[in-house]
C-alpha cells in the first residue's frame, strides 16, 4: 500500500506550551504548599530527632543541624585517609547519604600524620565546620561500662589508655589505676572503643546529644 498522500492533511494540533505555563507555576506553588503540609506532618510524627544517634565526622554540626546542612555528596568519605567514614544507605531514610562511622571497627584517627582534618577540608558546605587543632574535635563522649570493664573488675587493663590519642588528658587513671574519661578533653574519636579488648566494648562513644540529656536527667 502506498503512503497516504495529500488529501490526508495533518490535523490542527493543540498549540504547544511556549515556555513555562501557568499550569506549571500552579503545580510548583501547590507543591510548595503540599510540601509544607507534608513537612508539618513529618514533624508531628516526631521523627525529627533521627539525626542525633549517629557518630558524625569531626566538626559536624550537632544533631539535626547536620542533617540540614549536609548535601550528601560523600566528599568527606573519599577524603578520609583512614577509610573511616561511610555513608548511610537507603535503609536509613532521610539520613541516606550522610556520613557516619563505627568506632568499634574503624574509629576516627583524627588525621594523625596529616596537617589538617581531611573531611572538613573536603566538605563544600558548613556541615563540617573548621577545626584548627584535633584536640578541639568533639564527636561524642567515651562512656565506660563499669560492670564489664576489666579494670573495674580486678583485672589489669590499660588498652583504652594506650589507644587514646590524648592519654592522661582524655583518659586518666584514678587511684585504683582504673580508667576514667575526662569529658573536658575527650574528643570522642573512638580509638579507645577500637582498642578495648572486650567482645562487647566496655568503653563506647555516645553522641553528645544523648550524653547531655542523660546526664541532665540524672542530675534532676
Amino acid at each position: 500500500m502506498n503512503a497516504p498522500m495529500c488529501d490526508d492533511v495533518i490535523q490542527a494540533v493543540p498549540s504547544q506550551e511556549q515556555g513555562l505555563t501557568r499550569r506549571q507555576a500552579i503545580a510548583a506553588g501547590g507543591g510548595i504548599i503540599a510540601g509544607c503540609v507534608m513537612g508539618l506532618g513529618y514533624k508531628a510524627g516526631g521523627r525529627s530527632g533521627d539525626g542525633q544517634l549517629a557518630l558524625r565526622p569531626p566538626g559536624a554540626l550537632v544533631g539535626d543541624g547536620f542533617l540540614s546542612a549536609c548535601i550528601r555528596c560523600g566528599q568527606c568519605v573519599q577524603a578520609c585517609p583512614y577509610d573511616t567514614l561511610r555513608l548511610f544507605d537507603l535503609t536509613a531514610g532521610i539520613q541516606a547519604g550522610t556520613p557516619t562511622f563505627t568506632a568499634a571497627t574503624n574509629p576516627c584517627w583524627l588525621c594523625q600524620g596529616y596537617d589538617s582534618l581531611k573531611c572538613i577540608d573536603a566538605c563544600p558546605t558548613n556541615a563540617l565546620s573548621a577545626i584548627d587543632n584535633p584536640v578541639d574535635v568533639r564527636i561524642g563522649l567515651a562512656v565506660i561500662n563499669e560492670s564489664s570493664c576489666l579494670a573495674y573488675n580486678r583485672t589489669m587493663c590499660r588498652a583504652c589508655w594506650h589507644a587514646c590519642p590524648y592519654p592522661n588528658q582524655a583518659i586518666v587513671y584514678d587511684d585504683m589505676l582504673r580508667p576514667v574519661v575526662n569529658a573536658e578533653a575527650c574528643t570522642g574519636c573512638g580509638l579507645c572503643e577500637h582498642g578495648c579488648p572486650m567482645e562487647t566494648k566496655a568503653i563506647t562513644i555516645k553522641p553528645l546529644t544523648i550524653v547531655k540529656t542523660s546526664s541532665a536527667r540524672r542530675s534532676t
Binding site: A27, I32, S68
Partner: peptide, 24 residues
C-alpha cells in the same frame, strides 16, 4: 507538570523540616 509539583514539594518540605530530602 508533576515534576514541577515535586520540585515545589521538596522546597516546601525543606522549608518546614530543614531536611534536603532530594539529596538523601
Amino acid at each position: 507538570w508533576s515534576r514541577y509539583a515535586l520540585l515545589g514539594i521538596l522546597i516546601g518540605f525543606a522549608l518546614v523540616t530543614s531536611i534536603p530530602l532530594f539529596q538523601a
